[in-house]
Structures are given as structure tokens and as C-alpha cells.
Design a protein around this nucleic acid. Structure first.
Lengths: 195, 195, 195, 195
DNA sequence: AATGAATGAGTATTCATTCAT
DNA sequence: GATGAATGAATACTCATTCAT
């Protein structure tokens, strides 16, 4: 009988939060600015989240889940390690091309003092990296002694940092070509393959 | 003769700032807390820096310079690329062992929205990375088509991220052995060497 | 025929309001919490009261009326002052025993900045106290020069404060015995009787 | 070397807080209004108190202490119970005549949901009341079976409530004559004396 | 009739910065 | 020079009230 929840409002809050955290950092993304950009009342988001922190945590969780799901799916449908890694990194690039704020958002918060990728997601990542190692070990594509940390570093962190450095123009360039994507992949695979 | 600036006070301010930024993040390191820990008056540091931001920027600049100087020195005194890279990474580890806050400080701010490694330092880093590539190319130790970005990523960013992940216990472990340091070096060199 | 107002809903609102004001104070009893405890929608009570304030005022009015009616009834059916006072105070205790929130509610609001016993009720109380004085004067049970204020203080305020002090455990004890009730009555009568 | 703390500012904060709590209740005395009336910056009082609540608690403590000290002093210098009680009540009236907000402030908070006279002060009051009872028992001025609660109620609470009822004009009058003060005293003593 | 989505003015509190001493 | 008293704009969050459905 009361009016239905306007889903688009919640979406706009999410979008505004993501955008403002990317643009001005967590501290610079004030509730007022988020509400204003989303076109809702200041107090509205407290109907869904108990605090600004929780809102951002939840958003981070979802964005990281996207990445994890991508890798999970690849591992289920493919058995060539090289191809899995290639698809994963291409997937991260694709995400950055479609919605570059998603990657910048993850990047911004994974290094922020008050945030961390959740314990459960870290565990999931570790298991997936172990699967990659196991698979790569069986068909001789990867060095056997590889640690999950190394796989995580090269397959997740490295592409994310690469994209971040580019978008921020750290060493000049602010975008990337198809060749450069391939180079990131090659670079990653080379570092993981047996000596 | 005017009284000399009390160097020890300034040093204490620097130490307190570094420590508190690492412990509580930039936002959590308040001027009051910095002044209190340094044992000086709140207003005192404004004699040297126009703002908290400038103080931190300056500190970041110095800490990054340490790293750059290290590499510069190595490049001047050594001509074996492998050895240069090894020494650089060992140097970063050594810094983290002696004063882990230095690395955490750099890590914290290089990803912080309001900070960036300065343009001039970025340029210096680029030139040094090019020198490494040139040297490695001449004696066939490195792939010829390597970009400065790749060298920066593997020789600076990767060890720093590794140390950070460990100290924060991202995947469990919170320290590192001599073997693990060697592994980071090998991993880095493998990724850069010719295929 | 229009649907009758759902009396039970209104009752539940009243009960919830009373309870929450007693438990958390006027400020701590939010509309949401009242509505939730009553099992009605937030907006529902605005059909009956223009504001939270009016709701509470009306409730206070009713609760105070109970007390006034008690005394009125006693004055109509009894002519022994001592017995009237005894019955009144026992009545207040009884109320506190059956539904201690009623007394705590009155107590909480009669001292609250934004509330007051209504002018008309204050007048009623004054008249009743005068009746008590007149009656007590006629049969020599009470000091002739007594003021309504004194009667009000000893017969209403004192028992209410006593009950409140006990329930809150001001000086340790949190309940009262039959003897203690008698003592309150004696104490009250002693203070009002001729010297 | 820095400027000295302006004591008058702190005094003005205390005065403003007292006044505004009396005028608009605890909830109605906002930090902005307190600061504005005191002529200081909003944030200033946080140099002395960690919160609005603590500020008010501390003020209440001091005001109640005044009352307790008064009684203590009387008990040390006098041995006639009647005279002690008389002086105490006259002292409370005097306080209300000099600075009626002090009494209203105590009255407002002693009944407020979030405040209470501190445990230690309640204990002090209990001990003093016991002293009064002991003294009054020895020289036959007071009923032997009196409880501290009864003494507290008649000697503290009753005069405070009386003053409050008058100032608020509960039953019409808004001040009191010397005779009326004497009457309060007589009333109090009568209620406590042996039957 | 009854709901509860949505509002936004209001709250206490923080903290970098200024400047009288 | 060095201090720390004082400022006030900015912050996250609350909640009585309105009104579309």
C-alpha cells in the first residue's frame, strides 16, 4: 500500500558512492556529496546501511565478488592454465574498459587503512590460486613450487596495478592497446612458468 | 647569531608523523597526536610546513628518494643486471627489516587518493628503469623489448606489495625468510629475462 | 457503514508509547520504535495525533485522570479524612504494583521540561485538595491552615517520589512491604494533622 | 608563552549550560546554543569535557555538592536537630533566591532519564541523613525509627519540589514569603518529630 | 483506510589552522 | 622563537513528519 522502494535510488546511491570514492577517496566522499549526486535525501541511505563504512564495505565485497566469480567460472570451463590466466586478465581489462571505476574502486580500498578484502574472499582467492597451481602443475604449464601468493600477485594485483598506473598516467600513458594487454598476459605467464 | 633550528624537534616530528600515518592512516594521524608524540607544540610544525599535507608530501618525497638513491648507487657501481636487481630488492627488504614503517609509509601513501609520487621522482624512476633495460639489453640478461613500467612494477612495486601483504598477513604469513627473499628476486628476474 | 477504528491498534500504540517512554525517556522513544512495538505503521498514529508530543500529552492526561478520579471517588464515598488519604495512597501503590509503568510514566513527564500536568487538571487537583482540607478541618483531623499545595505534595507527590526512588533503587531498596506502605501513609497523615 | 586559558570563557560555558538546560531541558540545550550564549566557539568546550553529557554531569555534581557541603557544615557546627534542619532548608531557599537556576538545574536533572545523582553523593547523603537521625534520636527531637529515605525526602526533595512548583507556578503562585519558608520548615519538622 | 518510502533540518563532535602571548 | 588557546567549517548520523500508493 505504501509506495514501492525505488530501486533506482539505491542504484544511484551505489553509483554515486563508487564514483566519489574513486574521485576523492573514501574520506573525500562525504554523505552529503553522495546523496546530492544520487539525487536522494541525506538520511536515505541509512535505510539500507547502518553507516557509510558498511555501505562501502558492501560495495567492495560485490565488486571483488565479480572478479572472483570470473575466475571461478573460467576454472570450471577450461583446463588449459595458460588460457585460464589469459581469460582472467582479459576479463579484468574488459571490466576496466566497460566501467573503469570498478577497478579503481577496488584498487583504492584494497590499499586503504580502514578496509581489507574480507577474510572469506581472501580465503576464496587463495583456494582458486591453489587450483590454478594444481592444474598448471599437472599439465606442466606452471612451476610446481609456486605459492598462491605469487599467483595472486601476478594474476590479480599486477593487472590491477597496471590498470591503475595507466589510468593515473603514472609514467605518462593513460590507456592501453590490445598488444599491451597481450604483453601483460605474456609477462604474467612467463613469470609463473617453469624455468 | 640567531638560534639554530632545533633539528631534534624536527626529527621527532618526522618520526611521529611517519609512525602515526602508518598506524592510523593519513586521516587518523591528527596534528595534535603528531605534536604530542613528538613532544612539541601543535603550532610548531607550521613553521616548517604550510600544512599537514605538505609535511606528509615532503616526508614521502624523502622516503622515496632513499629508494631511488639506492638504485642509482647500484647502477653506478655494478654492471651485472642480475646483481643490481638482486641488490635493489634486498635493499628494500633490508629497509623493511630495519624500519618497516618506512615501507609501509610509502605503500600507504602511494595508493592514497591525495598523494602521488612526485612527477620529478617518477621521471627519475623511469630513467633508472631505462638504464636497467639498456644495461640488461647490452649483456643479454633482459628481454630487449621491456618497458620501464614493467621494470618498475617488478623491481619496486612487487617487492613493496609483497612486504605489505606479508606484514598485514593478507594470506596468513606475517614475516619472510631468507629463502623467500631469494624467491622474490628469482621471480622478478625470471619475469624480466629473455624468453 | 465505515469501518470502525481498530481500537486494539490504538491501544497497542498507547501501551508501546508508555512502555518506551518509561524505558528510554521521551527523547529515546522514537516513533519508529513505538510503531514497531505496537505492530502498526509509522504513519498510522498521525491519524489520531498531530505529533508525537500530542500523543504523549494525551496519554499523560489520561493517566493523571485515573489518579484524580480515584481521589474524587474516595471523596464522594467517604467522610473520614484519614481513611480517604489512606485509600488514595494505597490506590497509588496498587497502581504501581499492578502496572508500575503508569506511575513511572507520570513521574517521568511531570518533571520533563516539555510537559506539565494540564492547567485544568491542576485546577481539579487544587479543588480536591481544598475539599480534603475542608473536610479535615470540619472534623478536626487536619490542621486548619493547610494549603492545597501541602496536601498535593504529601498525598500525591510524596508517594509518587517514594515509589520512583524505590523502583530506581536510589538508596538501595527496589521494592516495598505492606508495613512500608503503612509507614508512608502514617508519615503523610502526621505531617498534615494539627499540632 | 601561549595565551593563558580565559577562565571567564569556561565560566560562561557553565553559566550558559545551566541556563539553557533549565530553560529548554537537556535535549533542548544544544551545543550550538550553549556556545552561542557563552560567546565561544562550538568546539571549545570539548577542550574541557569529552562530551555534552560529561559537561552536564560535572555541573550537576558540583551543584549537588554545594547542597551536601551545606548540610555537612551545619552538622559540624550545631547540635540542635531542629536548628540544623531549619538552617538546611533556609539554605536551599537562599540558594534559590540568589540563583534560582541552580535549584531548577538540579531538579531538572535529578528526574531526567539519563542522569542520576552520583552513587558517591547518594551515599554521602545517606550518611548525613543517618547522622541527623542519630542526633535527633539522642536528644529526643526525632522519631527513632526514621529512615534516611524519609529524612532525604523531607529535607531535600520536599523543599526542592516546593521551590520548583512555585517557580513554575504549578498552583498559581510563583514566589514565596518568609512565612511560607517557615511553614515549609515546620511542616518538615512536624513530619519527622516523634508522635 | 493504512502503509512505509522518503525527506531534510537538526544533532554532537572533530580537527587543521591561526595567532595572542 | 615556541606555545597552546581558540576557532568554526565540516562530518556522519537521527528521527519526526509527510504523502504517494
Amino acid at each position: 500500500m505504501a509506495r514501492a522502494i525505488d530501486e533506482s535510488k539505491l542504484n544511484r546511491i551505489h553509483a554515486a558512492t563508487l564514483q566519489l570514492v574513486v574521485e576523492h577517496g573514501y574520506g573525500g566522499a562525504s554523505i552529503v556529496s553522495i546523496a546530492r549526486r544520487a539525487g536522494v535525501a541525506e538520511g536515505y541511505l541509512y535505510r539500507f546501511y547502518p553507516s557509510k563504512h558498511e555501505l562501502v564495505v558492501s560495495l567492495l565485497f560485490n565488486k571483488v565478488n565479480q572478479l572472483i566469480s570470473k575466475l571461478k567460472e573460467l576454472l570450471e570451463n577450461d583446463t588449459v592454465t595458460r588460457s585460464i590466466i589469459e581469460q582472467l586478465i582479459l576479463g579484468i581489462f574488459e571490466l576496466a574498459e566497460i566501467e573503469k571505476n570498478d577497478i579503481l574502486f577496488i584498487h583504492s580500498l584494497m590499499h586503504h587503512y580502514h578496509f581489507q578484502i574480507s577474510t572469506s574472499q581472501r580465503e576464496e582467492i587463495r583456494l582458486l590460486c591453489e587450483q590454478v597451481i594444481a592444474l598448471g602443475g599437472r599439465n606442466g604449464e606452471l612451476e610446481a613450487s609456486l605459492t598462491p601468493e605469487e599467483v595472486y600477485t601476478m594474476c590479480f594485483l599486477y593487472p590491477i596495478e597496471f590498470i591503475h598506473l595507466r589510468i593515473k598516467g603514472f609514467l605518462g600513458k593513460t590507456d592501453w592497446s590490445a598488444e599491451e594487454k597481450q604483453r601483460v598476459i605474456t609477462f604474467c605467464i612467463n613469470s609463473l612458468k617453469p624455468v
